[in-house]
Design a protein around this nucleic acid. Structure first.
Lengths: 263, 263
DNA sequence: CGTCAGGTTGAGGATGATCAACGAATGTGG
DNA sequence: CCACATTCGTTGATCATCCTCAACCTGACG
C-alpha cells in the first residue's frame, strides 16, 4: 500500500497523502489518485507571487516542497501574514469558491508544486468523489487551526505568541515528516514572525533573545530548534492536535466515503 | 419561487435560504429542500449551552431566531468569543468532521433552531446533493470572514476593533434582513464585546463612550445604531463583502451543482 | 571591501490592562 | 409599588506591555 516513504521524490508518498493519512484512513483507491496528482512536479522560484490579493485567479496546486506565506497588505502598508503554507497544503482552494483572492501567496524559497488546472479539477474530483471529501476534511482542519490561533494569540503575551507559532510550525511540519524532536528547517525571519503574530519586529527580536538565552529554543539562519518541546508547549498553553481525530461517520456518504474503507 | 418574504414564521423563507440567496442563485429544488429543513422549529431557552468544548457532540442545527456565541474558556479562566452565531448560521457543523468540539456554543437569548439529527443528514444531503454544495459554500464564507477578522483585528487600535465588530454584525444581520440603515437588535453587552475583540471590559467601555459622544454610534440596552455607516467603515477600514461573489464554475459538478441552475 | 538583509540593543512614549469605586438599569420578591 | 439584588456600565489612577525611533552589529555575498 505504501508506494514509498522516504522523501518526496517522484513516486514517493507526497506530503498531502501523508498529512491526510495522519488523521483519516485513506483507501488504496484514493491514495492512488492522490499520488497521481502529487506525482506532477513544477518548480517555482523563490519569492514568486502565486496569487495576488484582490485579483481574479485560478491558480490551484499542492505545495510539495519549500514554503510560502499567505499574506495581506493592509491599506497602511503593513503586511499581515495569515499563515504559512507548508508542504501538503493546498494553494488557491478558496479560488474555487470566490472570484477574488482575499490575500496574496508568495513563495519564501525555491518550491515544488503539483499544479492542477482549474477545469481539470472537475474531472479529477468527479472521477474520484472521495477526493472531494478529503479536500473538505483538509479545509475543516485548516479552519480549526485558524480558529485556535485566533483564540490563542489574542490577549497573550509576546512570549506566548512566539512560542505558539514555533510549535504550530513544528507540528504541521511534523505531520509531513519534515520536523521531529523540535528541529525543523524553514527560512523564517524575525520580520516574518512579527507580521504573523502581530508584533513589532523589535519586540520579536527581544522575545526570541529571551527564549534563546533561556535555553528553550535556538534559531539559526534557517533552522529552528526547540530544545524542550513540552516545556515550551506548557509555556504557550499549546495543545497538540492529536485529538483532532476525524469523525466522518456522521457525514453523508455521497460526500465522504473513502472508497470501501469508510471511516 | 419565493414562498414568502416577511419574517421567519413557518412557511416563510428562512434565514439560511436568505443568506445563501444573497450570494448564489439557488434552484427551486434546492430551496424547497432547505425550506423543509428550516420549517422545523424548536425553541431554546436563553443561556442554554448547545455544545460544550472538549466534549463529543452531535448537535447539528440551523439558528433561525435569536443569537448565540461560540466561545472558549481558556485555562486561565478567561473567555474568548470566537464569533457570534446569528440567524442563518449552522451550529455544530464541525462536529461532522471532528469528534470533539473545539469550543462551546451558548444561546444569548431565547432562540429558535431547526434541529437536524446526525444520522438524518446522510439521507438529507444524499437525496439533495446540491445541499452539500451549499454547506461547503457557507463554510468557505465563514472561513473567509474569520481570516479577515484575524487580519484586521490584530495590530489595530481599540476604536478600529470595536467599529469593526459592530459593522461585521450589522452586515451579517443585514444578509438575513435583520439589520438595515445601521440599526440592529442584539443583546450585546460590553463584556461580550471585550471577550470577542480581545480587549478589557473597561477599555471597551471607554472606547464605546468615545464613539457615542462622537455621534458615530449609539447603543441602548439591546440595540445598536450606527449613525453613519460609511464613516464608521472608513474609520475601521471595513470592506463590505459585496465582492464576496461565488465562483462555483470551477467546482466539480458532483459536489457543487445547484439543481439545474448551475452557477 | 562595500553593500545589504537580518538581527540586537537602548530610550522614550502610547496604548491598553488592572484595580477600585461608584452609578444606572433591570429584575425579583414581598 | 417598593426594597433589594444583580447585572451592566462609567470613570479615575496606576502600571505593564509593547511600539517607535534610532543607532549599531553581524554575516552573506558580490
Amino acid at each position: 500500500m505504501n508506494i514509498g516513504e522516504s522523501g518526496f521524490g517522484p513516486g514517493a508518498a507526497g506530503p498531502l497523502i501523508r498529512k491526510i493519512r495522519r488523521f483519516v484512513h485513506l483507501s488504496v483507491q484514493a491514495e492512488k489518485a492522490l499520488a497521481a496528482l502529487e506525482g506532477r512536479r513544477r518548480a517555482v522560484a523563490p519569492h514568486t507571487r502565486l496569487i495576488e490579493q484582490e485579483q481574479r485567479y485560478d491558480h490551484l496546486s499542492v505545495l510539495i516542497q519549500g514554503s510560502a506565506i499567505r499574506y495581506k497588505l493592509l491599506p497602511d502598508g503593513r503586511r499581515q501574514v495569515v499563515n504559512f503554507v507548508l508542504p501538503g497544503d493546498i494553494i488557491g482552494l478558496r479560488g474555487c469558491v470566490f472570484e477574488q483572492a482575499f490575500y496574496s501567496v508568495t513563495t519564501l524559497e525555491a518550491c515544488v508544486v503539483s499544479p492542477l488546472e482549474p477545469n481539470e479539477i472537475q474531472d479529477f474530483v468527479g472521477t474520484h468523489p472521495s477526493l472531494g471529501a478529503a479536500v473538505f476534511w483538509v479545509t475543516a482542519l485548516e479552519h480549526t487551526r485558524l480558529t485556535e490561533r485566533l483564540v490563542t494569540l489574542r490577549r497573550r503575551s509576546a512570549q506566548h505568541r512566539v512560542a505558539y507559532l514555533l510549535l504550530d510550525l513544528h507540528e504541521r511540519l511534523e505531520w509531513v515528516g519534515l520536523a521531529g524532536n523540535g528541529v525543523f528547517v524553514l527560512p523564517v525571519t524575525q520580520e516574518l514572525i512579527a507580521d504573523t503574530i502581530g508584533l513589532s519586529l523589535v519586540h520579536v527580536s527581544r522575545t526570541l533573545r529571551r527564549l534563546q538565552t533561556g535555553g528553550l529554543v535556538s534559531l539559526s539562519r534557517r533552522a529552528v530548534h526547540i530544545r524542550d518541546i513540552d516545556e515550551l508547549a506548557h509555556l504557550a498553553d499549546y495543545r497538540f492536535a492529536t485529538r483532532t481525530r476525524a469523525n466522518l461517520g456522521l457525514l453523508p456518504r455521497s460526500l465522504f466515503e473513502f472508497g470501501s474503507e469508510v471511516i
